[in-house]
Design a protein around this nucleic acid. Structure first.
Lengths: 255, 255
DNA sequence: CGGTCGCTTGATAATCGTCAATTGATGTGG
DNA sequence: CCACATCAATTGACGATTATCAAGCGACCG
């Protein structure tokens, strides 16, 4: 975990490490103002922990490259991944309530983040109404995403969850302007299972099944979506697993 | 749904409808400032909808009395409850990102809410640093709660979820200074099932089981917790349902 | 008084977890 | 450079948790 402080008179001298790497919907002037409160960039190797659950909440982190998981620790040593973060996403926003991080932030791959002091961010917000609205939007987006995850976990079957997840990967990449049909998964099957409330084995079977039905081509971590329409069917209606007796709608017994 | 506008020169003339009903951790001066941006109080009957998913986001709502559910609508007419709200909680905070409500807010019982204009709230926040921190805390609390729900749905068994839910009811009542061991559930079994990712029948069986084991006394919607310690055991370790073959840990075959 | 609603309880079945064996990739040290 | 260990992933067999289907009951309402 290598830290690279950003010298204070940085602004507008060199290209800033975050240039062009802020969330894509920020106006230029806001990008400017945000880079002014950045304090460091940090490099992490796979598996390194950027923030510990319960630790004092002093920084927000913007993902510049790589990917992260947010891990909640439960009783009995169990844990679950509650969020994945990719480039241009802001991490740590759930820390405001208790002034400590609520989950571990762990790098899934070699990654770079840009660090912001919470205090500076709050000051900048008080001074600038537009910035306030932006922060409210970001934190509110996270809330929205968490509620969608609740829906996935509570109401969708395993095949629907995988399909839903893959579609979200696609929209994330669309926002970044990258290829929507071909991408690498930054996480293991086990991590994906943890996030979706399933086991590694179920994830593996479902990915194999997607491959077998030519909905997508899956090779290790590489995913190539072949049929968006079929993926949509998976998400809406679900499917049965490889070796099932198909469910015959039980014939209504006529009275 | 009866609306009662709050006359503008209200402040400090009559007792304000929200007096003593704001979130319990607000300082007096902040309470004062918040009541100044309240626009109306609204009375709702059971089943009435305060905000529709997708509708324009112009107001935040503080529950004065009663209770609400936040319902997410999915494809295929399915829907899930993603949050319950009780007295002194603020609703609508996930609307900032798209400037529309992300779920239906439905009254579970005859209820009263206090309505705040989003615009006024944002202005008040820009003007007052302490208020900003408060709002960040509230929205961040919601995010935290949603992430805990993800953990429940993804990692806990049915008995653990019920126990977890009952414990949360207790902490909610503790914050309000009300009896922690005896309370009414404001929702039906079906609604509770929707929230916990279970069916009505499973909820019913589990509540019966809690009763049968003298962990709690359950009569219709009334709950009386008898053994906090056993409830904790249910949450940590789970239990088996009424008629099971107990799982014998398969004897390790010695090599 | 009939009808709907909320709830309970039982019997059955399906989804998905658990356990196990195997393979390939990666990395490490002798 | 190759044995060896480790880890991610795949696949199969089996079983348990929990959903589904069904029947019945009390309460409330028009």
């Amino acid at each position: 975990m290598k830290r690279h402080p950003i010298p204070l008179p940085y602004r507008s001298q060199h290209p800033h490490p975050c240039d062009g790497r802020l969330p894509p919907d920020l106006h230029a002037e806001l990008q400017q103002r945000i880079t002014e409160v950045a304090t460091s960039t940090i490099e992490l190797a796979r598996g390194e922990i950027l923030a510990h659950s319960g630790a004092a909440f002093h920084h927000l982190y913007l993902v510049v490259s790589g990917a992260f998981k947010a891990v909640q620790l439960g009783a009995e040593g169990k844990s679950q991944i509650v969020c994945f973060y990719g480039p241009r996403e802001l991490m740590g926003l759930s820390g405001f309530s208790h002034r400590c991080y609520t989950s571990d932030l762990v790098a899934l791959a070699p990654s770079v983040v840009c660090e912001f002091s919470v205090q500076s961010v709050e000051s900048a917000i008080s001074a600038d109404r537009a910035l306030l609205e932006r922060l409210l939007i970001y934190i509110s987006e996270n809330l929205e995403r968490a509620e969608q995850d609740q829906f996935m976990l509570g109401s969708l079957t395993a095949p629907q969850r995988i399909a839903c997840f893959l579609q979200r990967m696609q929209t994330a990449r669309r926002r970044l302007g990258e290829d929507v049909h071909s991408f690498e998964l930054p996480m293991t099957r086990e991590e994906l299972g943890s996030y979706l409330g399933l086991t590694m084995e179920t994830i593996s079977r479902l990915l194999s099944h997607l491959h077998a039905q030519d909905v997508a081509r899956i090779d290790k971590r590489h995913v190539h979506i072949l049929r968006d329409d079929l993926l949509q069917v998976w998400r809406d209606e679900g499917v049965d697993l490889p070796l099932p007796k198909r469910k015959k709608p039980p014939e209504l017994k006529l009275a």
